[in-house]
Design a protein around this nucleic acid. Structure first.
Length: 192
DNA sequence: AGGAAGATCTACT
DNA sequence: GTAGATCTTCCTA
């Protein structure tokens, strides 16, 4: 499956978030390959977005949001690693949070990493999917536009689906805009 | 040192 | 369905 080019991420974060739905997240772990379909995302901006990690300006830990699009940006919240992909037009700031996946390949391995048997609980949340795919700070900054990366995003199967939008989840201060997107009716979406 | 953070799990009414 | 404990880093004092 073809990876998405960097130009895909060099656009408005909300647009990238919307279009990442249905794409594949591929995790390479030695000889194992895990993959899942992206079914839920959220867009974050920079200085104008109070919920954004970049709100208070550039720091070492959020530097990636200011740099090249198409890199993984990973941080810890409440004991969970959350996966973002840096996305913004050149010279701007932003990222897309991956909130939920539909497991495709390596389900048994995901179950082992998660320590649960319930198929529907494997990747139905931002903290759950990182554990299922063994995503940690070590992958911070990896290039998801490189097919050889330990983490990459590729084209999806191309089936059609309806997209829903809503306000972001769990944030202190949300913006007026609806910046959360998900596939309607998909059972792995964290909250319908 | 202390507290906040895009969450998750469990145990109840 | 809600409420609370607990999760682990990084920021600010």
């Amino acid at each position: 499956m073809k990876v998405l080019p960097r130009s895909f991420y060099e656009r408005d974060p909300a647009k990238v978030a919307r279009e990442l739905l249905g794409k594949m997240l591929v995790r390479r772990l030695g000889r194992n390959v895990l993959s899942g379909k992206i079914v839920e995302t959220e867009a974050y901006y920079g200085e104008n977005d109070p919920a954004s990690k970049a709100y208070k300006g550039r720091k070492t830990f959020n530097e990636l949001m200011f740099l090249d699009a198409g890199k993984a940006f990973i941080y810890m919240v409440h004991g969970n690693w959350l996966l973002n992909i840096v996305a913004h037009p050149k010279g701007e700031v932003g990222a897309v949070l991956i909130r939920a996946l539909e497991p495709i390949k390596g389900v048994e391995i995901m179950k082992a990493y998660r320590g649960v048997n319930d198929f529907y609980a494997l990747t139905s949340g931002p903290g759950k999917l990182t554990r299922a795919l063994a995503i940690t700070k070590e992958l911070n900054g990896v290039d998801v536009t490189d097919n050889k990366s330990e983490l990459a995003v590729t084209e999806g199967a191309g089936e059609s689906f309806d997209v829903c939008a809503s306000h972001r989840i769990g944030v202190r201060a949300d913006l007026q805009q609806m910046l959360r997107f998900y596939i309607r009716g998909n059972i792995f979406v964290s909250k319908p």
